[in-house]
């Protein structure tokens, strides 16, 4: 299920930035060749980042890409390691929860002031910010889910599994992924 969610979020994320790239390219070309300006991509770029950022938080969470330093951690006895892994996921969930709360505040203010972007489209800010908030909420729920699971693994003493699923991603693991895809690409003649 997580994999399907991951795929979906990644496709949305990618589509946002591909579309943005094409739009910006068009705008730059129009500006250069015809002296004509669409005046929208700057604004859209900001919204794309806001929405894309929240999606990417969740994807980095699933991929265990949020950086943790394992220099000391990997040398600790298993119980310590397990406790730290669990603590990390709880802290991450708290931070995600905080971001969710802060985003809620932002939306509240925007509604109260009926804020409107200072651009040609005069976009009511509530539109992009609602989507941004949904992204932030997904991140929050995902992080809380993972934290609850890690706590459960710790309490029920399944330390090996906790280790396996919550250990910071080491350079070695990250590299294995890269090497896999590199060797897949190199079907051509080698030097």
């Amino acid at each position: 299920m997580i994999e399907r969610l991951e795929n979906m979020l990644a496709v949305i994320f990618g589509a946002i930035f591909l579309a943005l790239s094409v739009l910006i390219t068009l705008e730059v070309l129009l500006r250069k060749l015809f002296g004509f300006s669409l005046q929208g991509s700057h604004e859209l770029g900001g919204y794309a980042l806001a929405v894309g950022a929240t999606l990417s938080f969740t994807l980095a969470l699933f991929g265990r890409n949020h950086i943790r330093i394992d220099i000391i951690h990997e040398r600790l006895p298993r119980l310590f390691r397990a406790v730290l892994n669990c603590l990390s996921s709880i802290l991450m969930a708290s931070f995600a929860g905080l971001l969710g709360y802060l985003a809620w505040n932002v939306i509240g203010d925007t509604l109260a002031y009926r804020s409107v972007a200072q651009t040609s489209w005069a976009t009511p800010l509530i539109y992009p910010q609602s989507i941004w908030y949904i992204g932030q909420a997904i991140f929050m729920l995902a992080a809380i889910g993972l934290a609850v699971k890690s706590l459960w693994l710790l309490i029920s003493g399944k330390l090996a599994r906790l280790d396996e699923e919550y250990q910071p991603k080491s350079a070695k693991q990250e590299l294995e992924d890269e090497l896999d895809s590199a060797s897949q690409r190199q079907r051509g003649p080698s030097l």
Binding site: E6, N7, L9, A10, V11, F13, G14, F17, G52, A53, L55, S56, F57, T58, L59, A60, L61, G63, N65, H66, I67, S181
Partner: peptide, 14 residues
């Protein structure tokens, strides 16, 4: 493309 998207999102999120 999908690999590009996932990788980009992960690095960006981090």
């Amino acid at each position: 493309l999908r690999t590009c998207f996932i990788q980009t999102a992960r690095v960006t999120g981090m």
